[in-house]
Amino acid sequence: MKQHVMGVDFGSTTAKTVILDLNGNIVSHAVAHMGAVSGNGVKQSMKDALDAAGLTQADIGRTVSTGYGRRMLDEADKNYTEITCHARGAVAMVPGARLVIDIGGQDSKVISVDSNGLVSQFAMNDRCAAGTGKFLEVLARAMEIPLEDMGATALAAQEKLKISSMCATFAETEVISLLAEGHPKTDVLGAVHKAIASRTLGLVGRVGKKGPVVMTGGVANNPAAVHYIQEELQMPLILPDVPQIAGALGAALIGLDDYRAENRQLLISEAEDMAREEQMAADKACVPGCRGVPEFAVDPREKQPVPGKLKSLVGSLQKHF
């Protein structure tokens, strides 16, 4: 039996891989930024994770994929949606979480989860890339600022401006107008992040606000997004150490459940094996205390012949043979 399982999140802008041992411990993980639903990105993240664990694909007992490209991964034995996987991964990272906010490259979703990490309700952006990483990417380009610097810059906002359009293209026009009016980049970026937070609050409203709330996905690495969402929600957000890998972790955990269930008989320890044999022997015994040896006619506790009918039955059998 193989000793590891793999979860792969084939996302729209990044690929994430998590490898677990059979006890559910993370052995390695990798994130590759290779562009939209890139086959190369996925291969790279899988290779990085395997190399870091000192394993090859042949050592992996079960591979589960998720994300937009989940159906495109040849190595995957099964695939699940990113909603199911993010919920499972987020609850594994933050036990007790009841709401998961995941903002990824091209979609944002709010997932209400039960105590087992199973999805009870969900809502996702259904118009366009409104309120997603793509929205930030488009506006970063319009404002000529590196994507990774957006968050820190936005945190320095002083004046509260408003961007009313959630369409990335129309919002770009608004941003350019605000800059043309002389507003500093910090304030405009603050408004951009506030717009994402309002959109997220709308999704939260659709599934019901409750806590603790975990934020996953690439946008969780943006401090301004986290700040404004917390402000809108009026609740703290819990951020896992590596929020991007929640989906891949969830996929790996689902794969682990599956693999363990399929190989249940191979997974028992030596002590469990002994205990099971003893139990089976006890179950087979036709008299109390018998351990399945041919002394079935004698009660081993008393070393006395069994009285009554059983004794006569034994006697007649002995005569026969």
């Binding site: 937009y68 699940y80 949606t81 990113e82 909603i83 199911t84 979609d107 087992n116 199973l118 999805v119 009870s120 969900f122 996702m124 259904d126």
Partner: peptide, 23 residues
């Protein structure tokens, strides 16, 4: 309609129903 996005929602719904059956 954005069928790919809708498909993710329907698949998730199917996964929820299956989990309920298994529970």
């Amino acid at each position: 309609m954005a069928l790919e996005s809708l498909k993710t929602r329907v698949e998730t719904f199917v996964e929820i129903v299956k989990h309920r059956q298994a529970a």
